[in-house]
Design a protein around this nucleic acid. Sequence first.
RNA 1: GGGCGAUUAGCUCAGUUGGUAGAGCAGUUCGUUUACACCGAAAAGGUCGGGGGUUCAAGUCCCUCAUCGCCCACCA
Length: 731
Amino acid sequence: MSDQIPDIFLSPYDSEANEKDVYALWEKSGYFNPDTCVEKGVTDADAETFSVVLPPPNVTGVLHIGHAYEDSLQDAFVRYHRMNGKKTLWVPGTDSAAIATQARVEKNIRKEENKTRHDLGREELVRRVSEFAKNSEDTILSQVRRVGASLDWSRYAYTLDEKRTLAVSTAFKRMYDAGLIYRGNRIVNWDPKGQTTISDDEVVHEERKGVLYTFKYSSDFPIAISTTRPETKVGDVAVAVHPDDTRYQEFIGKEYDLTFCDVPLHITVVADDGVDMEFGTGALGVTPAHSHIDWEIAEKNDLPRPQVINEYAKMMVSGRLENLKVDAAREAVVTWLKEENLLEKEEEVDQNISTSERTGAVIEPLPKLQWWVAVNKPFTIEHSEIPGIASGSEATLVEVMRASVESESVSMPQERFRKTYFHWIDNLRDWCISRQIWFGHRIPVWYKGDEIHCGVTTPEGEGWTQEEDVLDTWFSSALWTFSTLGWPEETADLKTFHPTAFMSPAYEILPLWVSRMILMSAFHLGQVPFKTVMIHGLVRDKSGRKFSKSLNNGIDPIEMIEKYGADALRMGLLVGTAIGNDLRFDESKVKGYKHFANKLWNITRFILTNIEEVPQKPDTLGAEDQEILDNLQTMVREVSGDIDKFQLYLAAEKAYHYVWHELADKILEESKPILNGEDTDAKNARQYVLYECLTTSLKILHPFMPFVTETIWQHLPEKDSEMLMVAKWPG
RNA sequence: GGGCGAUUAGCUCAGUUGGUAGAGCAGUUCGUUUACACCGAAAAGGUCGGGGGUUCAAGUCCCUCAUCGCCCACCA
């Protein structure tokens, strides 16, 4: 019956020729949308739900191999659950990534027009950045489709769109009203190059050589101090010593007036047990405005906190240091110390320098008026579904974050990430949420004289000016699981799909994002954002290095898809990678799975060529036929079990192994004599069995290799579902 | 400084509660060209980073050392 084989099977599988059509077919069917699945009867109206929100890629760039991995992983789960009859929703979206995007556009403007953002003005810059974001968005979304992600595009969200902006303002206002958001002066990480505050998480520590100088402020001051930043000493107000340090007991409480490098100082000697007696001279010069620990010591002892370095990293004092950059000021101070014969010791030390992840600039700690989220301040939680946190009780954000994971309301199957999470929570400090840039969610606060108004819209009346700062991009990302479902409106989606089923981010954003989603969801909904967090590793290059622009070691997933097909890329990334471990990208592996797609293609061709007509189930089956079907069932059970346990890498490998080395190598070979033989009953029975093996294999492989399996499915003579994507999972 | 990992065949990685070491790729030999050369068959390849311990039994549990990596951190 080979003349009835669809022509398409006569040449090798061509991924390029089929993938786009198949994706268009899926999109047209509407089955990515769970509501359509219910309408068309493929999903029961009261079916269990399975919902996932896509970790939104930044609109800055193009799809990289890490996205491709993450998307393949989620898509496999989503497709599996959809085929299992669950009401399945996967919500797509993109992130404005405020700082990164604005920085990128500013750089382009500087290069092409030699202008700064101040030349353009706030409105024009925001317009330009939005325009750039829109273009990038189109690129990245079409690339997400190429991977085969079965996302419900009708629910697409962007962190800066109207609905999400409302969610952000509402969230801010509610937390402000609850007293959890406050404005306060604190030492922040100031990036003098980017002219903005950056969060602790955006600071990278670099090991560098520095010089530790030991000296006295003046010849009549009794205690020598050590520092690597002598220029900051013009801002000193105290010398702190350990309360038990016998060397300095007699000085504690004494005050001194002196002149240091042309600057008059008033120094009080205070005791603080945070001081390390072993380090340097055991005495710490306290510079409140330019060091975190010093700020706290000054606060405790009620000391002034004069600022001596400005936003451009220049000195703010008069005298010989006036207007010098910090580096120059440092040299000037050292020269002065030498002249005055005050310098006792210079030693080279290793030190950690804080630098900006984004601009590479050395961070200047500065006191600034910023907006903060208080993580250790109690608030009344009106409604709580989190075990251990009763509705109406008092709790802190740290407590609800802890309870969510401790109770396994959020399960983290990988023990080591639970440890990391708790370690992070235990050391959590208030979260600085204001950023001095223009692109992003502008803080919903207005000022008029001494009046302050927080709300979702501009207040009535004349004379109100809005806060200039925008929010940390993670503030809006943290609302993602519910802002995408329509919150603050009480939508049907929110009721049906929240908490979401699972989230699969890379481990590098566990603290930045995962914990903050738990925080926001607990505060605003009294729920966890997701039931399971399956943290995955990073895709690295062949030598184990992270992909980066400077190394130019990037792998373009689209290029891989064009060369080997999306299915091959997905398998290459998923098989043999225990979730949570890093993987080194191996092109030869991808190539191997391209061959596998073709193998499946040829298996189909063989089986279709050898069946007379649509095979019916025979009344009885011989022992061998029965055994084949039994083994098939065993494989199905194992694959399903592995997916349920989040062991995709095992499931995919088992399915692969079965199809190639069991179905093709053994079953087909052993079937040849039967199919060519004279025994009609045996022949019919075997035809039926092979067709079963084929359709079941296609279903089992579909979550991993959606394109080739759906392409084959569309050309099968008989099937139990119009589309493989919504066919019933076997077993 | 604190925390978390990794180390298994030439390469990339699996190995679920301790029970005779697995896969893919590469390499070797042979075969087949009427499902598939994007193929098949067979063989080869590892003292599971080093050392110590628990156990009838350890890649798996414990201790220790080494190398590599990641995250966190206000030692001036």
